[in-house]
Each structure stands twice: as structure tokens, then as C-alpha cells.
Amino acid sequence: MANIDYYLGTISPWAYLAGDRLERIAERHGATITYKPLDLLQLFDRTGGVRPANRHPSRMEYRAQELPRWAAHLDMPLNLKPAFWPVNMAPSSYAIIAAQEAGGGDIGGLVQGFLRAVWAEERDISDDATIREVLSAHGFDASLADSGLFVGAETYGRNLEQAVEAGVFGAPFYVVRESGQKFWGQDRLDFLDRHLASL
């Protein structure tokens, strides 16, 4: 059985556009997913990337065309300029980490819930009430927003270090532990699917 480490930032539009395809692929191949939310901006700093605010205008212009193209292709709603972006990723990331540790709910749905909140629902994922609502909506105890703070903060930092060590430089980024194969971007999920079929 394959194990996939999924590195993500909860404000990434590309992670949002992945939808539930990773979960469906994993289910098809009997693979497990470990969700590893991290500080995406620090990851850029550590691995030679450029934060969106500092990118050349031509790159941002292309991004402004490409995101709606993909959203239309995938039939997913997308607000190109969300009301709450950029926003502090830590609180939602801590909630994901705590929920994954606790179990009992739909962790894939939780991740997608936070991403959808940013890119389709104009919600602030750093807001405590929003975090509690998204946790509850996916079968988790809303109190994880509080109780998971310590372990969440510790694991959040460790996820960044693990990402750098694993050669991760963006999000979404999928690493198959058994083979060491890496897949960067929601547009590489078909390749991940094909790779898992070959194991």
C-alpha cells in the first residue's frame, strides 16, 4: 500500500483547484494520505521561490488568466481576488493537524473546506468562528480549534522542515514515500494516478 505525503498551504488556489481528486485517486489504489499543511510563504523563501507580492507583473498577469481557465475547466467556482487573501495560514493549518491526529471525521473534506472558504466563499480562515464551523461541518469536534494549538504549532513548523528536506518547493505537492516520486501541482494528479497504478 502506497503512502502519500501531501504538502499544502491553506491559501493556495492551486490546492483548492485540486478538489477531491487526490482522495479519489488514493481510494482507487488503496493508498493513504498524510496531510502536511505548512507556511507556504516561508517555503518559497527557503527554496528559491518568490512570494506572490514580489513576483514580476507578467507572472501575476498570467496567473490571473490561468486560474479562471482551470476553474472553468474543472467547473469550480473561483473568486480571483478573495476578500481574505492573503491571510494567516497558521490557525487553519493547526486545525487540520489536530483533526488528523484526532481522527473520526473527513480530513480530506476539512482541507477542501478551508480552501473553498478562501477561494469560493469569501470567508476568513484565520477567524476562530470560521475554523470551528469548518471543523464541525466535516465531522470534527469544534473544540480542536483550541485544544490542538500546541501540537498544531509544533507539527506546522516540522512540516516545513520536512518539506525542505523532501525537495518540496510549492503547493500542492505530493510525495510517494515508497518510490520517492514527486508531483508538483494539481495538474500532475493524473501522473500520480498512473504512478500508483504501477506500484
Rank of each mutant, 00 (worst) to 15 (best):
E161D: 13
D193N: 04
A166T: 14
R59V: 10
L199D: 10
N3K: 03
E133A: 15
G9D: 09
I107T: 15
G105W: 00
R24T: 07
F173N: 03
R21F: 07
M76F: 07
A166C: 10
F173K: 05
E27G: 15
E154D: 12
P86G: 04
Q186N: 14
D187A: 01
G148E: 13
Y156A: 13
A2C: 09
V87G: 01
I4G: 03
D128Q: 15
A153Y: 08
G113E: 07
W85D: 01
P91Q: 06
A137C: 04
L160K: 10
G49S: 02
G108I: 11
R69I: 01
L17Y: 02
L115R: 02
R28E: 10
A197H: 00
P37H: 11
F183V: 02
V151F: 02
S126R: 00
A145Y: 13
R194P: 02
S92M: 13
K36H: 14
A171N: 06
Q65P: 03
R158E: 13
H56N: 09
N79C: 08
Q181T: 12
P77S: 11
A71C: 03
D127R: 03
T155H: 08
K36S: 12
A171E: 11
Y7H: 07
A31M: 06
S12R: 00
G30H: 05
P86S: 07
S143P: 14
L135F: 07
N3F: 04
A129F: 08
N79L: 11
G30D: 04
F150Y: 06
A95N: 13
F44Y: 01
S93A: 15
Q162H: 07
G139P: 03
G157F: 09
L17T: 08
W119L: 09
H29V: 10
G109Q: 11
V151T: 05
L189E: 08
G152E: 13
A197K: 00
G9A: 05
K36T: 15
L192H: 07
V176E: 14
D146E: 15
K182G: 06
D193Y: 05
R24Y: 03
A26K: 02
H73T: 11
L67H: 01
F114V: 12
Y6K: 05
G30E: 00
D127T: 11
L67W: 06
R24K: 13
A129C: 08
H73F: 11
N54Y: 05
T130G: 06
H195V: 10
L192F: 06
L17I: 09
W85H: 03
D5V: 01
